Simulated scan of single mutants.
Amino acid sequence: MRRQKLLRMITVLMLVFGIFMSGAITTNAQVERIPTAGVFINGKVVNGINPVKVDGIYYLPFTQLAKALGYNHIKFDKNTLTYEVTDGSTIIRATMGGTRAKKGNEYVNIKPPLWMDGIGYISLHAGGALFNSYITFKKENGSIQIENPATKYIVHAGDTLYNISRIHHTTVNELKKVNNLTSNIIKDGQVLKIPDSGSPKEMEPIKEEGIVRNVNEELNADIQRQNIITEAKKYIGAKYKWGATLADAPNLFDCSSYTQLVFKNNGITLPRVSRDQASKGVAVPTANLEVGDLMYFTMKDQYTDGRVAHVGIYMGDGSMIHVSTSKGVIITSDVLNNSYWSKNYLFSKRIIQ
């Protein structure tokens, strides 16, 4: 009898633990359905969304929020209740019930996302932290207001100034300076200003992983590089789509799905997003750029976290062929003297040598 009671107790504890870990809300939670809200990004309405309010905290459907912000490539693992989304620059992973999510290779503290009626929900604060936005609910008209890119960050439990400075590629001293902080103590819910990005910040080359070679080893490097440019030019005029996948090609690309396809069609495998592609190859000084090198940029008008946000292919004459968000696949001449790209340039990597 004691053994049976013990087994029942263990089973109940496991069920309770499973519910907690999955992000399922408790039966006594106060849930309020909010009428469909307009989503305003920088003052312009872009979509509608269906919020819920749980125990006084506003939550948004994760996939609806992701799509509104251009993260159109969405995967969902039903076994772990984990979402993986990308806009082409970086990959975001969030698990229902988890207190830490992943943005690129960096962990972000968040309020645990909820799983309710077969839908994943994320709090406004957590959504802002993951999507580099500042998200609020405007009671006057029942709308969701999104500042993108964010100039503010809402502190989450477990955050430190060091952690916040790291994910925004700034320093603790800069954070303290712009927020008039005299100590390192911060609290959950506190709103911090994000330091002005100034010059590009993510100056990694992340990590060196050696040369990636074409599967056809009989071709010398010069021929391989020229083949890359020939392939890249085939798609001039194709349109841009945030978070495009290879399934959208050849009519729609984002910057990294474009480079991924061009290199794939030359026997070279690149990761899906620009930040991960930047981990391949070896760093190249701008004075030594060659045909086929990959050029990486941040986009300060889109992200304030200094991430690798854009990738293009160097053409050998100062020009870059790439996918512009406004013009699709184009060639930008004299790219390092271009008024926009020069101020966002980070580094270049050589894939073929």
Results as ranks from 00 to 15, higher is better:
253 F>W: 08
69 L>W: 06
125 H>D: 03
253 F>R: 05
342 S>P: 05
254 D>N: 01
142 G>F: 02
297 F>R: 15
169 H>Q: 09
100 R>P: 08
281 G>W: 09
49 I>R: 03
43 G>V: 13
50 N>F: 03
23 G>F: 00
285 P>E: 11
209 E>F: 11
8 R>F: 05
168 H>V: 01
252 L>K: 12
273 V>H: 05
329 V>Q: 06
322 H>P: 01
18 G>P: 02
96 M>K: 07
131 F>G: 00
323 V>T: 14
126 A>L: 03
131 F>P: 00
163 N>K: 15
108 V>Q: 00
16 V>L: 07
290 E>N: 13
299 M>W: 09
306 G>T: 14
62 F>V: 04
222 D>L: 13
69 L>R: 05
2 R>F: 13
105 N>Q: 13
138 K>Q: 10
65 L>A: 01
32 E>T: 15
294 L>M: 09
60 L>K: 08
48 G>N: 14
217 E>T: 15
211 I>T: 09
147 E>L: 08
185 I>C: 13
94 A>E: 14
341 W>T: 09
124 L>H: 02
234 K>R: 10
239 K>A: 14
200 P>C: 07
51 P>Y: 05
225 R>M: 10
183 S>H: 12
10 I>E: 02
64 Q>L: 00
220 N>G: 02
109 N>T: 02
93 R>E: 01
314 Y>A: 02
82 T>S: 06
6 L>V: 10
199 S>G: 07
29 A>K: 01
338 N>H: 15
299 M>N: 13
38 G>I: 05
